[in-house]
Computed example of a mutant assay.
Amino acid sequence: MLILNAYAKINLALDVLYKRPDGYHEVAMVMQAVRLADTVTLTSKPNDIALSINISGLPADASNLAYRAAALLKPYAFPQQGVHIRLDKQIPLAAGLAGGSADAAAVLKGLNCLWELNLSLDELSKFAAQLGSDVPFCLYNSTMLATGRGELLEPLPPLKSCYVVLAKPAIEVPTSWVYQQFKADKVSRRPDIAVMRNCLAAGSLTGVARNMVNVLESVTISAYPEIAKIKESMLRYGAMAALMSGSGPTVFGLAHCQEQAEAIACQLKAEGVPEIFVAETVSKVE
């Protein structure tokens, strides 16, 4: 049996460059792992794949990314090898935090060990890219530049360790809808990836905070103004910066220390934000 942490991600920067011929959008994203995690337990069993989940609302069948990850690797295992996958979800659903992608990545890494496949991370990344744009990043975690549709990764200097407050309003925002609605001429500011890279290399949290930009806010905040209200509240309560993660709706705020992050979280709870988490950043590949 193996037990793995499947870490959530946030986007310190997210730019949408253009729509590709294959229907995906070309993106440039600075992605960061945080220690809000699902627990993925893999237990050997004969022959087939089984999946169970601690919450309702998620399919525990072949449509689930974690199941699909196991199915991708199954042809490379001995025929009698199977697995029972147990997902204990902590990352909120449909939140822009890559919870499903993190689970799939953990299954790939875990089965590579459990089934003794001896695949490198680069080889696992090829399987990960077949599952979803965020899955390759979730294999590596830490701080990465993601380009292409998100599957092309370049390590960046790690973000100086800090705490983040994550706040999810009671709405769900389909990622596909956000990208369909995206209009480049509605974007007032784009992230400068080169400047962000320099700030990371210098270990400047202040510099990173000043340069956090997500162009998808131009879509999601226009439709859901409560996201902007959460951002404003985080800044009012002392966050260094606040930004929507991915296509939303979760907002994260950077804090210097755990105490400050916990204080911000308490204020947001008092305002009635339904789902709030405090997590430390992941500063190295795990």
Rank of each mutant, 00 (worst) to 15 (best):
I3T: 14
N5D: 13
A6T: 08
A6E: 06
I10M: 12
N11T: 09
L12K: 00
A13D: 03
V16I: 05
L17M: 10
Y18F: 13
P21A: 10
D22R: 05
D22W: 11
E26I: 05
V27H: 04
A28D: 14
A28Y: 05
V30M: 07
A33W: 06
V34S: 12
L36F: 02
L36C: 01
A37C: 12
V40I: 15
V40R: 07
V40G: 04
L42A: 05
S44C: 07
N47L: 15
N47R: 15
N47A: 15
D48T: 13
G57E: 06
A60I: 12
D61W: 01
D61Q: 08
D61C: 06
A66W: 07
R68L: 06
K74E: 04
P75T: 05
Y76S: 11
Q80N: 12
Q80L: 12
Q81A: 13
D88S: 13
Q90C: 11
A94L: 02
G96S: 00
G96I: 09
A98N: 02
G99I: 11
G99C: 06
G99M: 10
G100W: 12
L108I: 01
K109E: 07
K109D: 08
G110M: 09
G110L: 11
L111F: 04
E116T: 13
E116W: 00
L117V: 07
N118H: 14
S125T: 08
F127E: 00
A129P: 06
Q130W: 02
L131W: 03
L131Q: 00
G132K: 02
P136A: 01
F137E: 10
F137D: 11
Y140I: 10
L145P: 03
A146W: 11
T147H: 08
T147W: 09
E154V: 07
E154H: 06
P155V: 09
L156P: 01
P157E: 02
P158G: 03
P158E: 03
K160N: 12
K160E: 12
S161F: 04
V164R: 01
A170D: 15
V178E: 02
V178R: 01
Q181P: 01
F182W: 14
K183S: 09
A184V: 10
V187H: 12
V187E: 08
R189H: 03
R189M: 13
P191S: 07
D192H: 06
I193K: 10
M196Q: 05
M196D: 01
R197D: 05
N198C: 08
C199D: 15
C199Y: 07
S204T: 00
L205I: 02
L205Q: 04
V208S: 11
N214W: 07
V215W: 05
E217Q: 15
E217H: 09
V219T: 10
T220K: 01
A223Q: 15
Y224S: 06
E226N: 02
E226C: 12
A228N: 12
K229H: 11
K229S: 11
I230K: 06
Y237Q: 14
A241C: 13
A241R: 05
M244I: 04
M244F: 11
T250K: 02
A255I: 09
A255N: 10
H256V: 09
Q260S: 13
A261N: 08
E262P: 06
A263S: 09
V273M: 00
P274S: 08
P274G: 01
E275L: 12
F277S: 03
F277G: 03
E280M: 08
T281H: 07
V282L: 15
S283C: 14
E286W: 11
E286V: 09
